[in-house]
Each structure stands twice: as structure tokens, then as C-alpha cells.
Design a protein around this nucleic acid. Structure first.
Length: 529
DNA sequence: ACGGGTTAGACC
DNA sequence: TGGTCTAAC
């Protein structure tokens, strides 16, 4: 609300990171002991490895054969896949059946499970903090500078924190950061008690340092990077460990300088940075290697774009491509429908990406089409876009559909201002004309005022015509609500003592120093489902 | 063995 | 604005 937090000189930032997130989601969902090795499989590879499996030397990027060699007892859970089964969209291809059901050549991966788990977690986060930024499906930055009122007993939580090596727990550490540690522990504990997911956290004055902290002690622990420990930390820290220097930019710097650690890079002057990276990024990097980062935590818990993609074996016919586009369109529409029910918004932009073998990938975009049968509309538009794209060629091996530029359609759904805003940027399609360079959009109605307004009220929520829904208003919203309710009632049944806070503080008073790890690794009889 | 599906942001 | 490229998970 106010800008105080982001402009304050001494901020308190938490970076929160769920441990091997996909693996945890599956292990909780299937009721598998987190102490037994588990990997999440995607086709022939694994994309998430739990800590027990890491103990066997298994890493992401291993193939399933290798995983089985390294640990024959490792549980492999395939990600959810979606596809068509004779004309019908097959929503959930249940994972723990045979590998055979995951037909790479007919289905695509769906990350829905993890997105759902993620959004439930973010609801908890936002119940604790106003300024919460979704950094990825399993990571968040929290600016708690303004939320640091906490009574003395609760502050005892900060003893859960690992302090950065060389740092000391002493009076030098700003009180605010210590309370931040207590806050982080409290939040992590809430996530654990509600979902049984463990997480790691870093607590520091800025995002850069907080992110470094969260990765220092994993899993299920948290780390404070105190201001006075920063010089020691940066002394031995490889340059490439700094956020955004992990890729080509980091390599470029290594090539052009002798610096390999952040400390070494501190001897590079602003002028020299100008030469190396250009004026725009010079000052930013100059600060970065000193552990200085002014970037604010932007309050945003939902994504700015939604994408569905598929890589497939080289395809050379329009019919073959259309099959994939249809599947992508279907998945996209499902997610959009849910998104709209939850976030009261809809996209203004539709993009198709395509990669032909041996060529760099390209993309084309159009205003998001308006109309009833969205799956059909998206499919038609995407096909047309491909057919008219000058640089499209067979064989094609990858396609994606994505949407972006969301506009809110909340309270003022009926207002003219919304109507004008949502419709703007679409007017080029009022006169679909092949002669104009701007690609036209198939299916835009003759744009009568009535039609557009009716689309606004119940329109975007409409399901696809082949899955008809009652004409009643906001059916999707009601459905989403109900699903949400069911989720929550499930959670309520497995609820873990709401007053654990008090219980643990009492224990502490008794002089039994407990660590969060104790809570995060419940004994087996404490576990449920 | 940089897999495959997602997201965000910078840049021209 | 549209499109490409980079970085990250």
C-alpha cells in the first residue's frame, strides 16, 4: 500500500523455496514416506528428485534407466499427461499406472497438480504478508519490513535459523532481521502443518542475499545473511552463483576479466563495467557483486502469462500439426477458464511459437479472439497463423500457444469502461481483411454491442461448446469455488493443531530446545494419508 | 545427455 | 508493438 517497505533503507526480505517441490507434491498426494526415494518422471527422464533419492546419487537429468540402476527401489511417479482418446479430451491420465499410458506421441505433460499446490501455498503466504512476489511455481519473495510486530515469545522462533558461516549471533544483527527469521520460521511451519510440504528460506536485507541464503542449508532449514557477514560470504562466492549471472552474462564476465568470485569482481570499476556490459547494466552489476540489490518485492501472486507447449517428433502435415494445436488449445482453455474464475481477468493477446527442425524458433501473435467455442477459435486462428507465416516450414517439431496481457474484468464487468478497455486493441479485427498486414482473427462476431456485452457477462466463462454448460451465469466460478471448498475441507480433516505455536513455545520454556526439523520430519504415526 | 514445459524480463 | 533472446526453475 505505502511505498515505505520498498523504499526503506533497511528492508527485511525472505526468500522462500519449497524443497524438490514436484517430488513433495507427489509424495504427499500418494502418501509416500518422504524418507523413501522418489523421483518425478517426465517421459524417459526425471524432473524432480527427493532428498532420499539424492542420497543414492540420483540427480535431475538422469534417465529413468540410470535411476533404476542407482536405486532399484526408487519410486517413479510420472507427471500427469493429457490427450485425446477417440475425439474426447482425456483430462487426467493417471500417473501411477503403467508407463504405457504415457504416450509421448499422443499426449502432453500437464503441470496442473503442481500449479494447484502452488496456488494453495500462495494463499497461505498472502495471509501472512501483503507484499508477496511469486518468483516461480515454488519460490516467493516476501517483504516483511512492515509486518515486524511480534511479541517476545514468538521471537524465540529465530533460534531455528542457521546463521551464515562467519556470521555471529550477537547484538550487531539488526533486531528487524531477527524478527524476520522468526517470521520465516512461522510461515514455513504454517505451510508444513497445512500441506506437509517442507521449505527452505533465506532472510536478508535484499532479494539477492535472501536468495543466496535459502540455498545454503537445504532441505527444510533457513539461513540468515546478516549484513556483517556479507563480505565473508562474497569472498568465496563464485560469480555465477549470483542471480542472473548463471548464464551467458556470467560467462562473458569471466571471459573478459580475471574475476571468478564476487569479491574479485569488486575490484572492477564502474568504468570498466561500462566497457564489459554496457552502460545500462554497469551500475546494476557493480552493486550486485557487492551484495547490494535495490530491486523491490513486487506484490504479485499470479502469473502474467500462460503457456502450453509440446515437443514432438518431426511432423510434416497440416493434419498432424492441427492435432497438436487442438490439444494445446484445449489445455490452454481449461487453464484460462480456471484462471478467470479465480482471478477475474482475461488475456488480450494470443501467441503461437513454432520450431522447425534446423531453424531457430519463431512466434506470431494476434489479439485474443472473442467468441463462443474457444478451443475451436484458438485452433482455427493458430492454424491460420501458421499457414500465413512467411517463415514457417515443415518439418515442425515444436509448437506452443500462450496468452498474455491480462485485463481485469472484476467489479465493473458491466461498465462501459471495461467494455472499452477489453475491446481496445481488438478493433483491427472489426474489419477482417486479408489485404491488411495485420493478421486477422477468425471468429470475431460482427461486433454488435449486445453480443460483446453478453460475452462479458457470461461469455468468457463459457465452457467449450462440446462440453455444454448451463446458460446460468458464472457456472465456472461456482464450480471452481466448490472444488476449492472440497480441497479445503480435505485439509481441515488432516489439520494439524492450530495452536502448535503455543505448544512449541511452552516446550521451549521447559528448556527443551526444539528445532523445526523435529516438526518437519514427523514420526510415522503422526503422518496421515 | 541442456532433456521438456513454463515463466519473466530485457532489448531492438 | 511484435518478435527474439536470455535466465531461471
Amino acid at each position: 500500500m505505502s511505498d515505505f517497505a520498498s523504499s526503506a533503507l533497511n528492508r527485511v526480505i525472505i526468500h522462500l523455496d519449497l524443497d524438490c517441490f514436484y517430488a513433495q507434491v507427489e509424495s504427499v498426494r500418494l502418501g509416500i514416506d518422504p524418507a523413501s526415494p522418489l523421483c518425478v518422471q517426465q517421459w524417459d527422464g526425471v524432473i524432480a528428485v527427493n532428498y532420499a533419492a539424492r542420497g543414492y546419487g540420483i540427480s535431475r537429468h538422469d534417465r529413468v534407466d540410470t535411476v533404476k540402476e542407482k536405486c532399484p527401489s526408487c519410486v517413479l511417479v510420472h507427471v500427469e499427461t493429457v490427450g485425446f482418446q477417440d475425439q474426447h479430451f482425456q483430462e487426467k491420465d493417471n500417473s501411477n499406472v503403467t508407463e504405457h499410458s504415457h504416450r509421448k506421441s499422443e499426449t502432453k505433460v500437464s503441470l496442473d497438480r503442481y500449479r494447484d499446490a502452488s496456488s494453495r501455498i500462495f494463499k497461505v503466504l498472502s495471509s501472512f504478508v501483503d507484499r508477496c512476489e511469486k518468483a516461480s511455481i515454488d519460490e516467493a519473495y516476501l517483504d516483511v519490513s512492515e509486518e515486524l510486530k511480534m511479541d517476545t515469545e514468538e521471537r524465540a522462533y529465530y533460534f531455528e535459523t542457521k546463521f551464515q558461516p562467519f556470521g555471529e549471533v550477537n547484538a550487531q544483527i539488526p533486531e528487524s532481521l531477527l524478527i524476520g527469521c522468526a517470521f520465516a520460521a512461522k510461515i514455513r511451519y504454517a505451510i508444513y502443518s497445512q500441506f506437509h510440504y517442507t521449505s527452505s528460506a533465506g532472510i536478508a536485507e535484499n532479494k539477492l542475499l535472501a536468495k543466496l541464503g535459502s540455498s545454503m542449508h537445504k532441505p527444510s532449514q533457513q539461513t540468515l545473511i546478516s549484513p556483517q557477514s556479507v563480505p565473508y560470504l562474497l569472498e568465496s562466492l563464485p560469480l555465477k552463483k549470483l542471480r542472473s549471472l548463471g548464464g551467458k552474462l556470467g560467462t562473458l564476465i569471466e571471459e573478459k576479466t580475471n574475476a571468478r568470485t564476487a569479491k574479485e569482481a569488486q575490484s572492477i570499476t564502474l568504468e570498466e563495467w561500462n566497457e564489459i556490459v554496457g552502460r545500462d547494466t554497469a551500475e546494476w552489476i557493480y552493486n550486485l557483486v557487492r551484495g547490494i540489490d535495490y530491486s523491490p518485492v513486487n506484490a504479485r501472486e499470479i502469473t502474467k502469462s500462460i503457456l502450453a507447449a509440446k515437443t514432438f517428433k518431426a511432423e510434416s502435415s497440416w493434419e498432424g500439426l492441427e492435432k497438436w494445436i487442438k490439444l494445446l488449445a484445449y489445455e490452454l482453455c481449461e487453464r484460462l477458464s480456471k484462471d478467470q474464475a479465480m482471478n477475474s481477468r482475461r488475456p488480450a493477446n494470443l501467441v503461437i511459437h513454432y520450431s522447425s527442425v534446423g531453424h531457430p524458433s519463431c512466434s506470431k501473435s494476434i489479439p485474443f479472439p472473442c467468441g463462443k467455442d474457444k478451443v475451436h477459435l484458438l485452433t482455427q486462428n493458430a492454424m491460420k497463423l501458421l499457414k500465413t507465416a512467411k517463415n514457417f516450414r515443415f518439418p515442425c517439431s515444436r509448437l506452443s500457444l500462450s496468452v498474455s496481457r491480462f485485463h481485469s474484468i472484476t467489479s465493473e464487468a458491466n461498465s462501459i469502461s471495461t467494455f472499452l478497455r477489453v475491446d481496445e486493441g481488438r478493433h483491427t479485427n472489426d474489419v477482417p481483411s486479408e489485404s491488411i498486414q495485420v493478421p486477422s482473427v477468425i471468429g470475431l462476431p460482427e461486433n454488435s454491442l449486445e453480443k460483446s456485452i453478453s460475452n462479458m457477462n457470461d461469455g468468457p466463462l463459457e465452457k467449450y461448446s462440446d462440453i455444454k454448460s448451463e446458460p446460468g451465469e458464472n457456472e465456472d466460478y461456482i464450480l471452481a469455488k466448490r472444488l476449492q471448498e472440497e480441497e479445503w475441507s480435505k485439509l481441515r480433516n488432516t489439520k494439524i493443531h492450530a495452536n502448535d505455536d503455543e505448544r512449541r513455545i511452552k516446550r521451549k520454556k521447559k528448556g527443551q530446545l526444539q528445532t523445526l526439523d523435529h516438526f518437519f520430519r514427523p514420526s510415522s504415526e503422526e503422518k496421515r494419508s
